[in-house]
Structure formats: C-alpha cells, structure tokens
Simulated assay, not measured.
Amino acid sequence: MTAVQDLSFAVGPGVTGFLGPNGAGKTTTLRMLLGLVRPTSGTATVDGRPYAELAHPRRVVGALLEASGFHPGRTARQHLLIQAQLAGLPAARVDTVLDEVGLGADAGRRVGGYSLGMRQRLGLASALLGDPAVLILDEPGNGLDPAGMAWLRSLLRDLAGQGRTIVVSSHVLAEVAQTVDRVVIVNGGVLRFAGPLAELSGAGDSLEAAFLRLTAELEGSAR
C-alpha cells in the first residue's frame, strides 16, 4: 500500500498548516522528514539535508508527534534534563522552555499526574529544548482547552515572528485558519494544494469549505 505518491512541497519561515483527512499520509510524511520512515524513492530534507545527516539535529529541528513516552514517575524537569543531556544541550534551557510552555509552576510534579493538555505542553517543551529554527508539530492542540488553544496560537505566532519555520498538522480547521500563513493539503497521499492561505480564502471559501472541496474532488475521481 502506498502512503504518499509523488508528494513534493517546500515550506519556509512562518506557520504552515499541513492538512488532510485521516489516512491522507500526513503522519507518514512527517515521520519521513524526521528520519523515522525511509521513503522508497525521493528525499525528505530539513534545512537542505536528511535528518540523519544533521550535525546537531535537536538544534535544527524540534518535533512533537505524540505526547507520550514520558516516564510517569519522573517530574517534567527531570524528563527534560535527561533529554538535554542526551542531546548535548545546556541544562539551563530546561527551565526556559518550561516557563515558555506554562509549566514552570508544575515542573516538580510527576508526569503521571499530568492531564493530557499538560503532557502536550511538555511535548512542546521538549520540541523547543534545542531552540530549533524548524518545528514539526502533529496535532499540538490535542487535549488543550479553549484558553490553551488561544495560548498555543499566540506561541506559534510569536515563534514564527522570530523567523522560525513551523509545520502544524491539525484537524481543527477553525484554529488553523487563525494561525497559519500557508497551507499544504494532501489526500490519498497526493498533493491537492500548496500555497498561501489567502489564495484559498481569496475565492470566497473558508478554509473548511476549501478543504472539503479539494479532498472531495479526489475522492470523487476515484469512484
């Protein structure tokens, strides 16, 4: 079974929404970018190089694919200190990123007592640990309440304002529409659109309407 086919796009500074229905190939594509899946043909690069060839990968790209894998008996600070040590990053970054994601007051709590939203924030802290220029985030708003979603939107816009490149995969289209500069839409492993958000909304479509039209066109042609 082919996950993606002839999928080619590039993203630069700013926030890019990476969108598609379930099974569209989004997570596979992100995993290829991070060297977790090897493409059968073609290349997936970050800063012009495959992830495995980056000299200091955590300083170049930070990723949040799922907020799991935390030892429930460790505190958030302990988890990040281990991550920093393994990646050769300064321990001083730990408290910086904990404050940045709003976990400073809960850094001494065991992660096993964290809510889903708090674990999601810890995953974001881990992604930010190396102060990377590129962020790859898969459903970063999962588990966040409305105030948390507003906080995440502000954080991503602030990071983009610093010149970073951010790729966000999400199903929450209303939130994506308030956050991103560009959109990449895939369906069935095929690219359906890549360009500025304004190009979709310029035709009078909302992001949701454009998304449904573009993904339905491919589904209709396969019948």
Rank of each mutant, 00 (worst) to 15 (best):
residue 198 A to M: 08
residue 78 Q to A: 15
residue 43 T to L: 06
residue 38 R to V: 10
residue 44 A to N: 01
residue 166 I to E: 01
residue 14 G to L: 05
residue 174 A to S: 14
residue 70 F to C: 09
residue 119 R to Q: 05
residue 122 L to A: 12
residue 23 G to M: 01
residue 69 G to Q: 06
residue 157 R to L: 11
residue 5 Q to N: 15
residue 203 A to L: 04
residue 28 T to H: 02
residue 126 S to K: 11
residue 192 R to M: 09
residue 9 F to E: 08
residue 139 E to A: 08
residue 220 G to K: 13
residue 43 T to H: 10
residue 47 D to I: 07
residue 36 L to K: 03
residue 189 G to V: 12
residue 8 S to F: 02
residue 119 R to I: 00
residue 57 P to L: 06
residue 138 D to L: 00
residue 166 I to M: 06
residue 56 H to M: 12
residue 114 Y to V: 03
residue 15 V to L: 10
residue 220 G to D: 14
residue 154 S to Q: 14
residue 3 A to G: 14
residue 91 A to N: 08
residue 214 L to R: 05
residue 102 G to L: 08
residue 150 A to Y: 09
residue 165 T to Q: 01
residue 176 V to F: 01
residue 41 S to H: 13
residue 174 A to I: 03
residue 174 A to R: 13
residue 98 L to A: 09
residue 38 R to M: 04
residue 197 L to E: 08
residue 135 L to T: 07
residue 53 E to Y: 09
residue 31 R to K: 14
residue 161 G to P: 04
residue 94 V to F: 13
residue 47 D to T: 05
residue 48 G to Q: 06
residue 214 L to G: 04
residue 193 F to S: 04
residue 29 T to V: 11
residue 157 R to Q: 15
residue 59 R to T: 15
residue 56 H to D: 15
residue 40 T to H: 14
residue 114 Y to I: 04
residue 69 G to Y: 08
residue 36 L to C: 02
residue 85 Q to F: 06
residue 6 D to G: 09
residue 153 R to N: 05
residue 185 I to F: 06
residue 182 R to L: 04
residue 73 G to R: 15
residue 192 R to P: 03
residue 82 I to Q: 05
residue 138 D to H: 06
residue 65 L to E: 07
residue 57 P to D: 04
residue 58 R to D: 13
residue 118 M to N: 00
residue 170 S to K: 04
residue 25 G to F: 06
residue 220 G to I: 08
residue 110 R to V: 09
residue 188 G to R: 15
residue 38 R to T: 12
residue 163 G to M: 02
residue 87 A to S: 13
residue 162 Q to T: 08
residue 124 L to R: 01
residue 68 S to T: 15
residue 135 L to Y: 02
residue 86 L to Q: 13
residue 204 G to S: 03
residue 125 A to K: 11
residue 79 H to Q: 05
residue 38 R to F: 11
residue 31 R to T: 11
residue 99 D to L: 08
residue 175 E to D: 11
residue 205 D to A: 11
residue 170 S to W: 03
residue 88 G to Q: 11
residue 223 R to Y: 13
residue 164 R to L: 11
residue 218 L to W: 14
residue 98 L to H: 05
residue 71 H to M: 13
residue 89 L to C: 11
residue 50 P to A: 06
residue 108 G to H: 14
residue 5 Q to L: 12
residue 203 A to H: 13
residue 60 V to N: 13
residue 41 S to M: 07
residue 212 L to T: 11
residue 64 L to E: 12
residue 186 V to D: 07
residue 50 P to N: 09
residue 164 R to M: 06
residue 223 R to H: 15
residue 180 V to N: 02
residue 18 F to P: 05
residue 120 Q to K: 00
residue 85 Q to W: 14
residue 77 R to D: 13
residue 147 A to C: 01
residue 80 L to M: 00
residue 151 W to I: 01
residue 154 S to F: 03
residue 143 G to C: 06
residue 177 A to R: 08
residue 105 A to Y: 07
residue 40 T to I: 11
